[in-house]
Amino acid sequence: MVDALQFLVSGLVIGSIYGLAGIGFTGIYNVTGVVNFAQGDKAMIGAMLAISLSQMGLPPIVAILLAVGLTGAVAVVIECFTVRPVGNDVWRGIIVTIGVGIVLRGIAVVVWGTEARGLPAFSGEEPIHFLGATVSPQSLWVMGITAVLAIGLALFFQLTFIGKAFRACAVNPFASRIVGIEIRTMSPIAFAISGVLGAIAGIIIAPITLMQYDTGLLIGLKGFVACIIGGFGNPMGALLGGLILGIAETFSAGYLSSGYKNAIAFVLLLGFLIFRPEGLFREIDSKLVKHER
């Protein structure tokens, strides 16, 4: 029983990490319809920048804010020079963001080398006990910030003008133009937001997962799977999808063969794509799934 509880708690922590990676996708997807395959790498870049800046002697909070801002700026540059020329061509959008991911990882190796780096935990390493299960304090940070960001982003989409404009672009680009919303200006904003979200994700998970140049790749992919499970474009869906994925992984690692744990994510991915491509929480997106014969 204690074991199951520990699996559940661990699953929630990992799930939050995946969910956090996942919500970074939603902003961009909502506006531009681009699935950014370099999203995980932005998290890596954000974390690496924060580590480097704090090693240069900046106070941690300044280093973190600066890293988050810089990553947002990098995201805007990516939007301007790679995503915009491609336009709304799905096919080229996928490949170009894959290319951006390769470049970011390459730059990371050149700048930071291939060795893993870590950030000190925000509030110590003393584990917290809960009915026999234990969590590290950093996990609580991850879960807390993930929840705050997911809810915050959902509220942002629900309540603010700009958030509504994001959703409007996704629902009906023509109508958006008619009311004066320019996708040209929304798209960099979306990339900046996702860059910032990615950087925050990378920074708060770095003390747990540790960061090296290719850490973002797998975390980004898992975040993507979380989005598929929860329904693309919906931050709360991404969070819930991440939690489902995380719990599925820890339970399968705990009770089944642990080696196949990584396959679980992709089996879930294929399963959802094929049997419920709209995810758990979203209306079907006609652009992505075949309707007509």
């Binding site: 799905v90 996928i94 396959a263 992709f266 294929l270 799934v289 075949k290």
Partner: peptide
């Protein structure tokens, strides 16, 4: 599937 979903499904297949 098509578009992103097809891309990701093939990616997932490769991983598995």
């Amino acid at each position: 599937l098509r578009g992103h979903y097809l891309a990701v499904a093939t990616l997932g297949f490769g991983f598995i």
